[in-house]
Design a protein around this nucleic acid. Structure first.
Lengths: 108, 108
DNA sequence: ACTTACCGTAAGTCATGACTTACGCACTGG
DNA sequence: CCAGTGCGTAAGTCATGACTTACGGTAAGT
């Protein structure tokens, strides 16, 4: 059920940019805030959401907090996605044939 | 770049429920609307968004429109996700060790 | 041709949530 | 011990978007 939070989090463009920044490696809040067109508190709030979704972890480092991606957080999302690939792909094959078959009544 | 639309779409709970319903197979708008706590036009609008994101396709069938999942729509999302698994996983291993290492000054 | 079923779009309402500024707390260095 | 730095939270504002009802358009049955 935790994939829901992950999706809802990554659905936001700003949070996605934040998450993608962290892909390059760990970074503090201040560093992340620079390079983004929003205030530092906004970044804090986004990081809080990402943390709640299990997508990132943080570690205190002196007076600052360093955030980094938790790969395990993407696990449930990956599993959820695979459920569609398997199940939906076979259904899809049955559909594509029909797409030009039974349309509205042909009126020549 | 299309993974952005997919994420933004699936970020919405109602759209997710809709998408998961379609996993069981194709269905018309009216059928989908029943079983969801929203009006039929709302479902139409959600389906429009899903279609724009390339996640579903539709086919006319008489007076109704049948929607079904397009597995290819999930492709970009999958690719995007993998980029994190590969890249972030190695970064993560370097981080976990530090998590208890350099904290705030120990004050015994 | 007329009615009925099914759907998409338009227009308007309302709540969610993304942002801001202001504040208080924890840690570090002089 | 006293600034200064870095951060999280609170409170308030404002736009986005998710929903509604109303309408028009297409296809099928009689």
């Amino acid at each position: 059920m935790t994939y829901a939070l992950a999706l809802q989090c990554l659905g936001d463009p700003m949070r996605r940019r934040l998450f993608e920044k962290l892909r390059a490696g760990s970074a503090s809040v201040g560093v992340l805030a620079k390079g983004l067109p929003v205030s530092r508190p906004a970044v804090s709030q986004h990081l809080k959401a990402l943390k709640r979704a299990g997508l990132v972890k943080d570690r205190p480092e002196g007076t600052r907090r360093v955030y980094f991606i938790d790969p395990e957080g993407l696990g449930p999302l990956r599993v959820w996605l695979d459920q569609f690939w398997d199940r939906a792909l076979e259904s899809f094959k049955q559909e594509v044939g029909k797409t030009a078959g039974r349309g509205p009544r042909r009126t020549p």
